[in-house]
Computed example of a mutant assay.
Amino acid sequence: VVVAVQQDSTTKAPVELKDLPEAVTKTLQSDPVKAWIPTAAFLVTNADKTSYYLINVKKEQETGSLKIDKDGKIIE
């Protein structure tokens, strides 16, 4: 079952952390990102068909999110 949230023709679909592409997983295991623990992941597809992975992360009491493209590059 795939659930996608529609927002301005941008879709956000949940992805199991174990199903992330290898390049994304490697980025999550590299410095300085590896200090953060991934808690959830989503594949975001924009109206122009570009896509990236939005990874929710946590470090102690802090939370944040990372945008990582399919090649493992962090998007600012």
Rank of each mutant, 00 (worst) to 15 (best):
A41W: 00
K34A: 10
A41H: 02
E76C: 01
E62I: 00
D8N: 15
A13C: 09
V3M: 04
I55K: 03
K12T: 14
A47R: 14
D31H: 10
V24Q: 04
Q7G: 00
V44I: 14
D69V: 04
D69H: 02
I75P: 04
V1D: 08
D48M: 07
P21C: 05
T63F: 02
A13P: 00
D69W: 04
P14L: 05
I75T: 06
S30C: 05
P21F: 06
G72C: 10
L66G: 11
I74W: 07
N56C: 00
T39D: 00
S9Y: 10
D71Q: 13
D69S: 07
P32W: 11
T25P: 01
E76Q: 14
V15D: 03
L17N: 09
K49A: 12
N46K: 15
L43V: 10
S9V: 04
T27H: 06
K58F: 00
V44D: 03
T45P: 07
T39S: 10
L66S: 08
A35Q: 13
T39L: 04
D69R: 02
G64K: 11
F42W: 13
T45Y: 12
K49H: 10
K67R: 13
E76F: 00
K67W: 00
D31E: 15
E76S: 12
I68Q: 07
I55A: 02
K26P: 01
F42N: 13
A47Y: 05
K18Y: 02
I68D: 05
K70M: 13
V5N: 07
I74C: 06
T50F: 03
I74K: 12
I75F: 01
K73Y: 05
K70V: 15
K26F: 00
T39R: 12
L17S: 06
S30F: 10
N56L: 10
V24F: 07
K12F: 04
A23C: 04
K67G: 03
L28E: 09
A23G: 04
A35H: 05
A40V: 01
D71A: 11
P21L: 04
N46S: 09
G64R: 07
V57R: 10
L54H: 13
P14Y: 03
I68C: 07
T39Q: 14
S65T: 08
W36C: 06
